[in-house]
């Protein structure tokens, strides 16, 4: 067959029949049948009570639960991120006291279950009936009733945030460590102060490494908030839907309601994560310049060749089964 279009830059373009792959069609057919069976089972089984699911999807208590769950998720992540950056910078410090404190914090909070920690924060007012600001073993300036300051919500928020900080600190540390030492040196040679170097040069580049796992941590945190009944905090999505389910003696439709909301929020977070990753990935050579240049840069050509996947840099790809 000869091609009709005279614009084809390849005059002798190959038009070959592809290799027949009947296995692919069989596998796809089996999977489609299995999926249809699953959907059939979901829709036709009356015990799912889709009417109740539909009715309670927009119930005021459920929506409030969604609100509290979101507040706990983002609140604890903010606490976690701020503390984690602090801990990671302490870990890099020349000061051995700061380094050890950071190590101890991460060891303690990563080494104990979040459930245990939440119960502990719930019991803090039993352990310390009053909180006071003052000098250790010296005079006290202000004193609070613990159960007034640390309500169930704050206990849950602190418990989740302090635990998360330990995990995020390791992520931030890996991110800061991933930035080439030459970057710091170049910035130092320009007369930048250490703090400016961290803020303007190191952290923005570390973000490329930090953002993807932090997005995963946020999604994970969304679901970890369901453990706050350990405090006990009783307004979040899981507790609210469970309570309704128990009241109606219909636990299954209410489980579906909470699952629906968790899935919806997770999906929205995934979209947000995609854009964040794209923003912090800028300058890594995959995108076009902001204003178009006349010639394609060399690295762009090289990147295009690599991206085509036909030229393998990795010799082991050829031999590993």
């Amino acid at each position: 067959m000869t091609t009709a279009s005279s614009t084809d830059p390849v005059p002798n373009r190959i038009h070959a029949r592809p290799v027949p792959r009947p296995g692919r069609w069989i596998a796809a057919a089996i999977v489609v049948v299995l999926a249809a069976m699953a959907i059939h089972g979901l829709v036709t089984n009356p015990k799912f009570r889709w009417d109740i699911v539909w009715a309670y999807l927009r119930d005021v208590t459920v929506i409030r639960g969604v609100g509290w769950t979101l507040l706990l998720t983002f609140g604890s992540m903010v606490i976690g991120v701020v503390l984690a950056v602090l801990l990671a910078i302490m870990r890099r410090s020349d000061n051995p006291v700061l380094r050890s404190v950071s190590w101890f914090y991460i060891w303690l909070f990563r080494g104990t279950p979040i459930y245990t920690q939440l119960v502990f924060w719930g019991l803090i007012s039993v352990l310390y009936p009053t909180l006071s600001l003052g000098i250790p073993f010296g005079p006290e300036f202000v004193t609070f009733q613990t159960d007034v300051v640390i309500t169930a919500f704050w206990a849950a928020l602190l418990g989740l945030g302090l635990n998360e900080a330990a995990y995020l600190a390791e992520i931030v540390r890996a991110g800061l460590g991933s930035v080439d030492k030459g970057q710091e040196e170049a910035a130092r040679a320009l007369g930048m102060k250490e703090r400016t170097i961290l803020r303007r040069i190191v952290i923005p580049q570390a973000m490329r490494v930090i953002v993807p796992p932090t997005g995963n941590e946020t999604i994970s945190m969304l679901k970890t908030t369901s453990l706050v009944l350990a405090v006990p905090f009783t307004l979040d999505l899981t507790y609210a839907t469970n309570a309704i389910g128990n009241r109606l003696f219909e636990p299954i439709p209410l489980l579906i309601v909470s699952a629906f909301w968790y899935l919806l929020i997770t999906s929205i977070l995934m979209v947000g994560q995609h854009y964040l990753e794209r923003y912090y990935g800028r300058g890594t050579g995959s995108e076009k310049p902001r204003r178009g240049g006349p010639r394609r840069p060399r690295s762009g050509r090289q990147a295009a060749i690599k991206a085509s996947g036909t030229a393998k840099d990795d010799p082991f790809l050829e031999v590993t089964p």
């Binding site: 800028r282 890594t284 310049p289």
Partner: peptide
């Protein structure tokens, strides 16, 4: 003509 390019886009 290269001011808005990122370093990875330059030789």
């Amino acid at each position: 003509d290269r001011m808005d390019h990122y370093p990875a886009q330059l030789s």
